[in-house]
C-alpha cells in the first residue's frame, strides 16, 4: 500500500510517446519531482511524495522508458531536450504555470534545460546528487568502456552495454550497491533493483547514449545563467558521482549547498527526513518572498 495516492493520474502524448504523470492536488506552490535517468520510474520519489503533498501541490512523472510512460527506440528518444519538453507537456496538461523542480542525478540536466528554455516557469530548483560534468568522474569509474565487449567485467567495467544485455540484474545489483554506500540499506537496495527491473537493457542503452552530447562547457554555461534560487544536496559518500561536481555546480549557479556527511548518491531514499525538510524549507522561503507560483 502507498502512503498517499494521487488525486489525478493522466497521460500526455508527446509525438507518439506517452508520458504518465500523477498530481497530488493541494493549495500553494507546485513541486515537480522530475524523472531521473531512465533506470528508475517515479517511485524513486516515494519517500518525498506523501510529505510534500501535505504542504504543496505535487506533480511527478515517469520518465520516458520507465513506468507507465512510453519507450521510444533509439537515443533520439532520450535526449535532454526530450525530457525538458516532456516536463513542459506535463505542466501544460496539469495547468501548472510555474513550479519548484526537484531532480536527482541525471535529472539535473533536464532541470537546467527547463530553466534555460523557460525561466518564467521555474520558481526554484533543488538538485540532489546532480550528475553534472563540472568536475572529473570518480577515479574508480575510469575503467568504464561502455561499448567494448568485456568478458568478465569487474566493478565499473559493468557500466557496459553488452553486460547490461547479458546480465541486467547483475548490473542493477552492482550500480544500486554503489548508490547506497550507507550501512544497513537493504530495503532501499531491494526497492531500487525492483524498479530497475521494470525497465530494460535497451532503454538503459538508448538513454545513456543520448547523453553523449552533454559537455562540461554547456552545462557550466547553463549553471551560470540560472537566475532562479537553487539548492544543491550532496552526499559526501556518493560513489556514483564525484561530490566535487555538486560543489562546483553550487558555486557556478550561486546556489546553497547542503552537504550530507556519510550519505550516498540517493539521499532522498536513504536519508529522506533530512531531504524532505530541506525541500520544505526551500519552498517555504520561496513562497515567503511572494514569488509568483501558480
Amino acid at each position: 500500500m502507498r502512503a498517499s495516492l494521487p488525486t489525478e493520474e493522466g497521460v500526455v502524448d508527446r509525438d507518439g510517446v506517452e508520458i504518465a504523470y500523477e498530481v497530488y492536488e493541494n493549495d500553494g506552490p507546485t513541486v515537480f519531482l522530475l524523472p531521473t535517468w531512465s533506470i528508475f520510474h517515479s517511485r524513486i520519489w516515494k519517500m518525498q511524495v506523501p510529505y510534500l503533498a501535505r504542504h504543496f501541490r505535487v506533480v511527478v512523472a515517469d520518465g520516458r522508458g520507465t513506468g507507465h510512460s512510453g519507450r521510444p527506440a533509439g537515443p533520439a528518444g532520450y535526449t535532454v531536450s526530450q525530457f525538458a519538453e516532456d516536463a513542459f507537456a506535463v505542466m501544460d496538461a496539469t495547468k501548472t504555470a510555474a513550479s519548484v523542480f526537484v531532480s536527482l542525478s541525471c535529472g539535473a540536466l533536464w532541470a537546467l534545460e527547463i530553466g534555460d528554455r523557460a525561466p518564467h516557469r521555474v520558481a526554484g530548483s533543488v538538485f540532489i546528487g546532480p550528475a553534472v560534468p563540472l568536475a572529473p568522474q570518480l577515479d574508480e569509474r575510469r575503467v568504464q568502456r561502455c561499448d567494448e565487449i568485456i568478458s568478465d567485467p569487474q566493478e565499473w567495467e559493468k557500466y557496459n552495454v553488452a553486460y547490461w544485455h547479458r546480465e541486467h540484474l547483475g548490473f542493477l545489483g552492482f550500480v544500486v550497491a554503489k548508490m547506497f554506500t550507507e550501512p544497513h540499506s537493504t530495503k532501499p537496495i531491494e526497492d531500487s533493483i525492483s524498479w530497475g527491473l521494470d525497465t530494460s537493457p535497451q532503454v538503459l542503452t538508448d538513454s545513456d547514449r543520448a547523453l553523449d552530447t552533454v559537455t562540461r562547457l554547456g552545462v557550466g554555461r547553463q549553471a551560470k545563467r540560472a537566475r532562479y534560487p537553487i539548492l544543491v544536496i550532496q552526499g559526501d559518500h556518493d560513489a556514483v558521482r564525484n561530490p566535487a561536481q555538486a560543489a562546483s555546480f553550487a558555486e557556478l549557479s550561486r546556489g546553497d549547498l547542503l552537504k550530507l556527511q556519510g550519505s550516498g548518491h540517493a539521499p532522498n531514499v536513504r536519508d529522506p527526513v533530512q531531504v524532505n525538510l530541506a525541500i520544505k524549507e526551500f519552498v517555504d522561503r520561496l513562497a515567503a518572498r511572494k514569488t509568483v507560483l501558480a
Binding site: L257, L258, K259, L260, Q261, G262, D271, Q274, R285
Partner: peptide
C-alpha cells in the same frame, strides 16, 4: 539556508 552540513546519525 541555515543548515549547510548534516551528518548521518551513525
Amino acid at each position: 539556508m541555515r543548515s549547510q552540513t548534516w551528518t548521518r546519525a551513525l
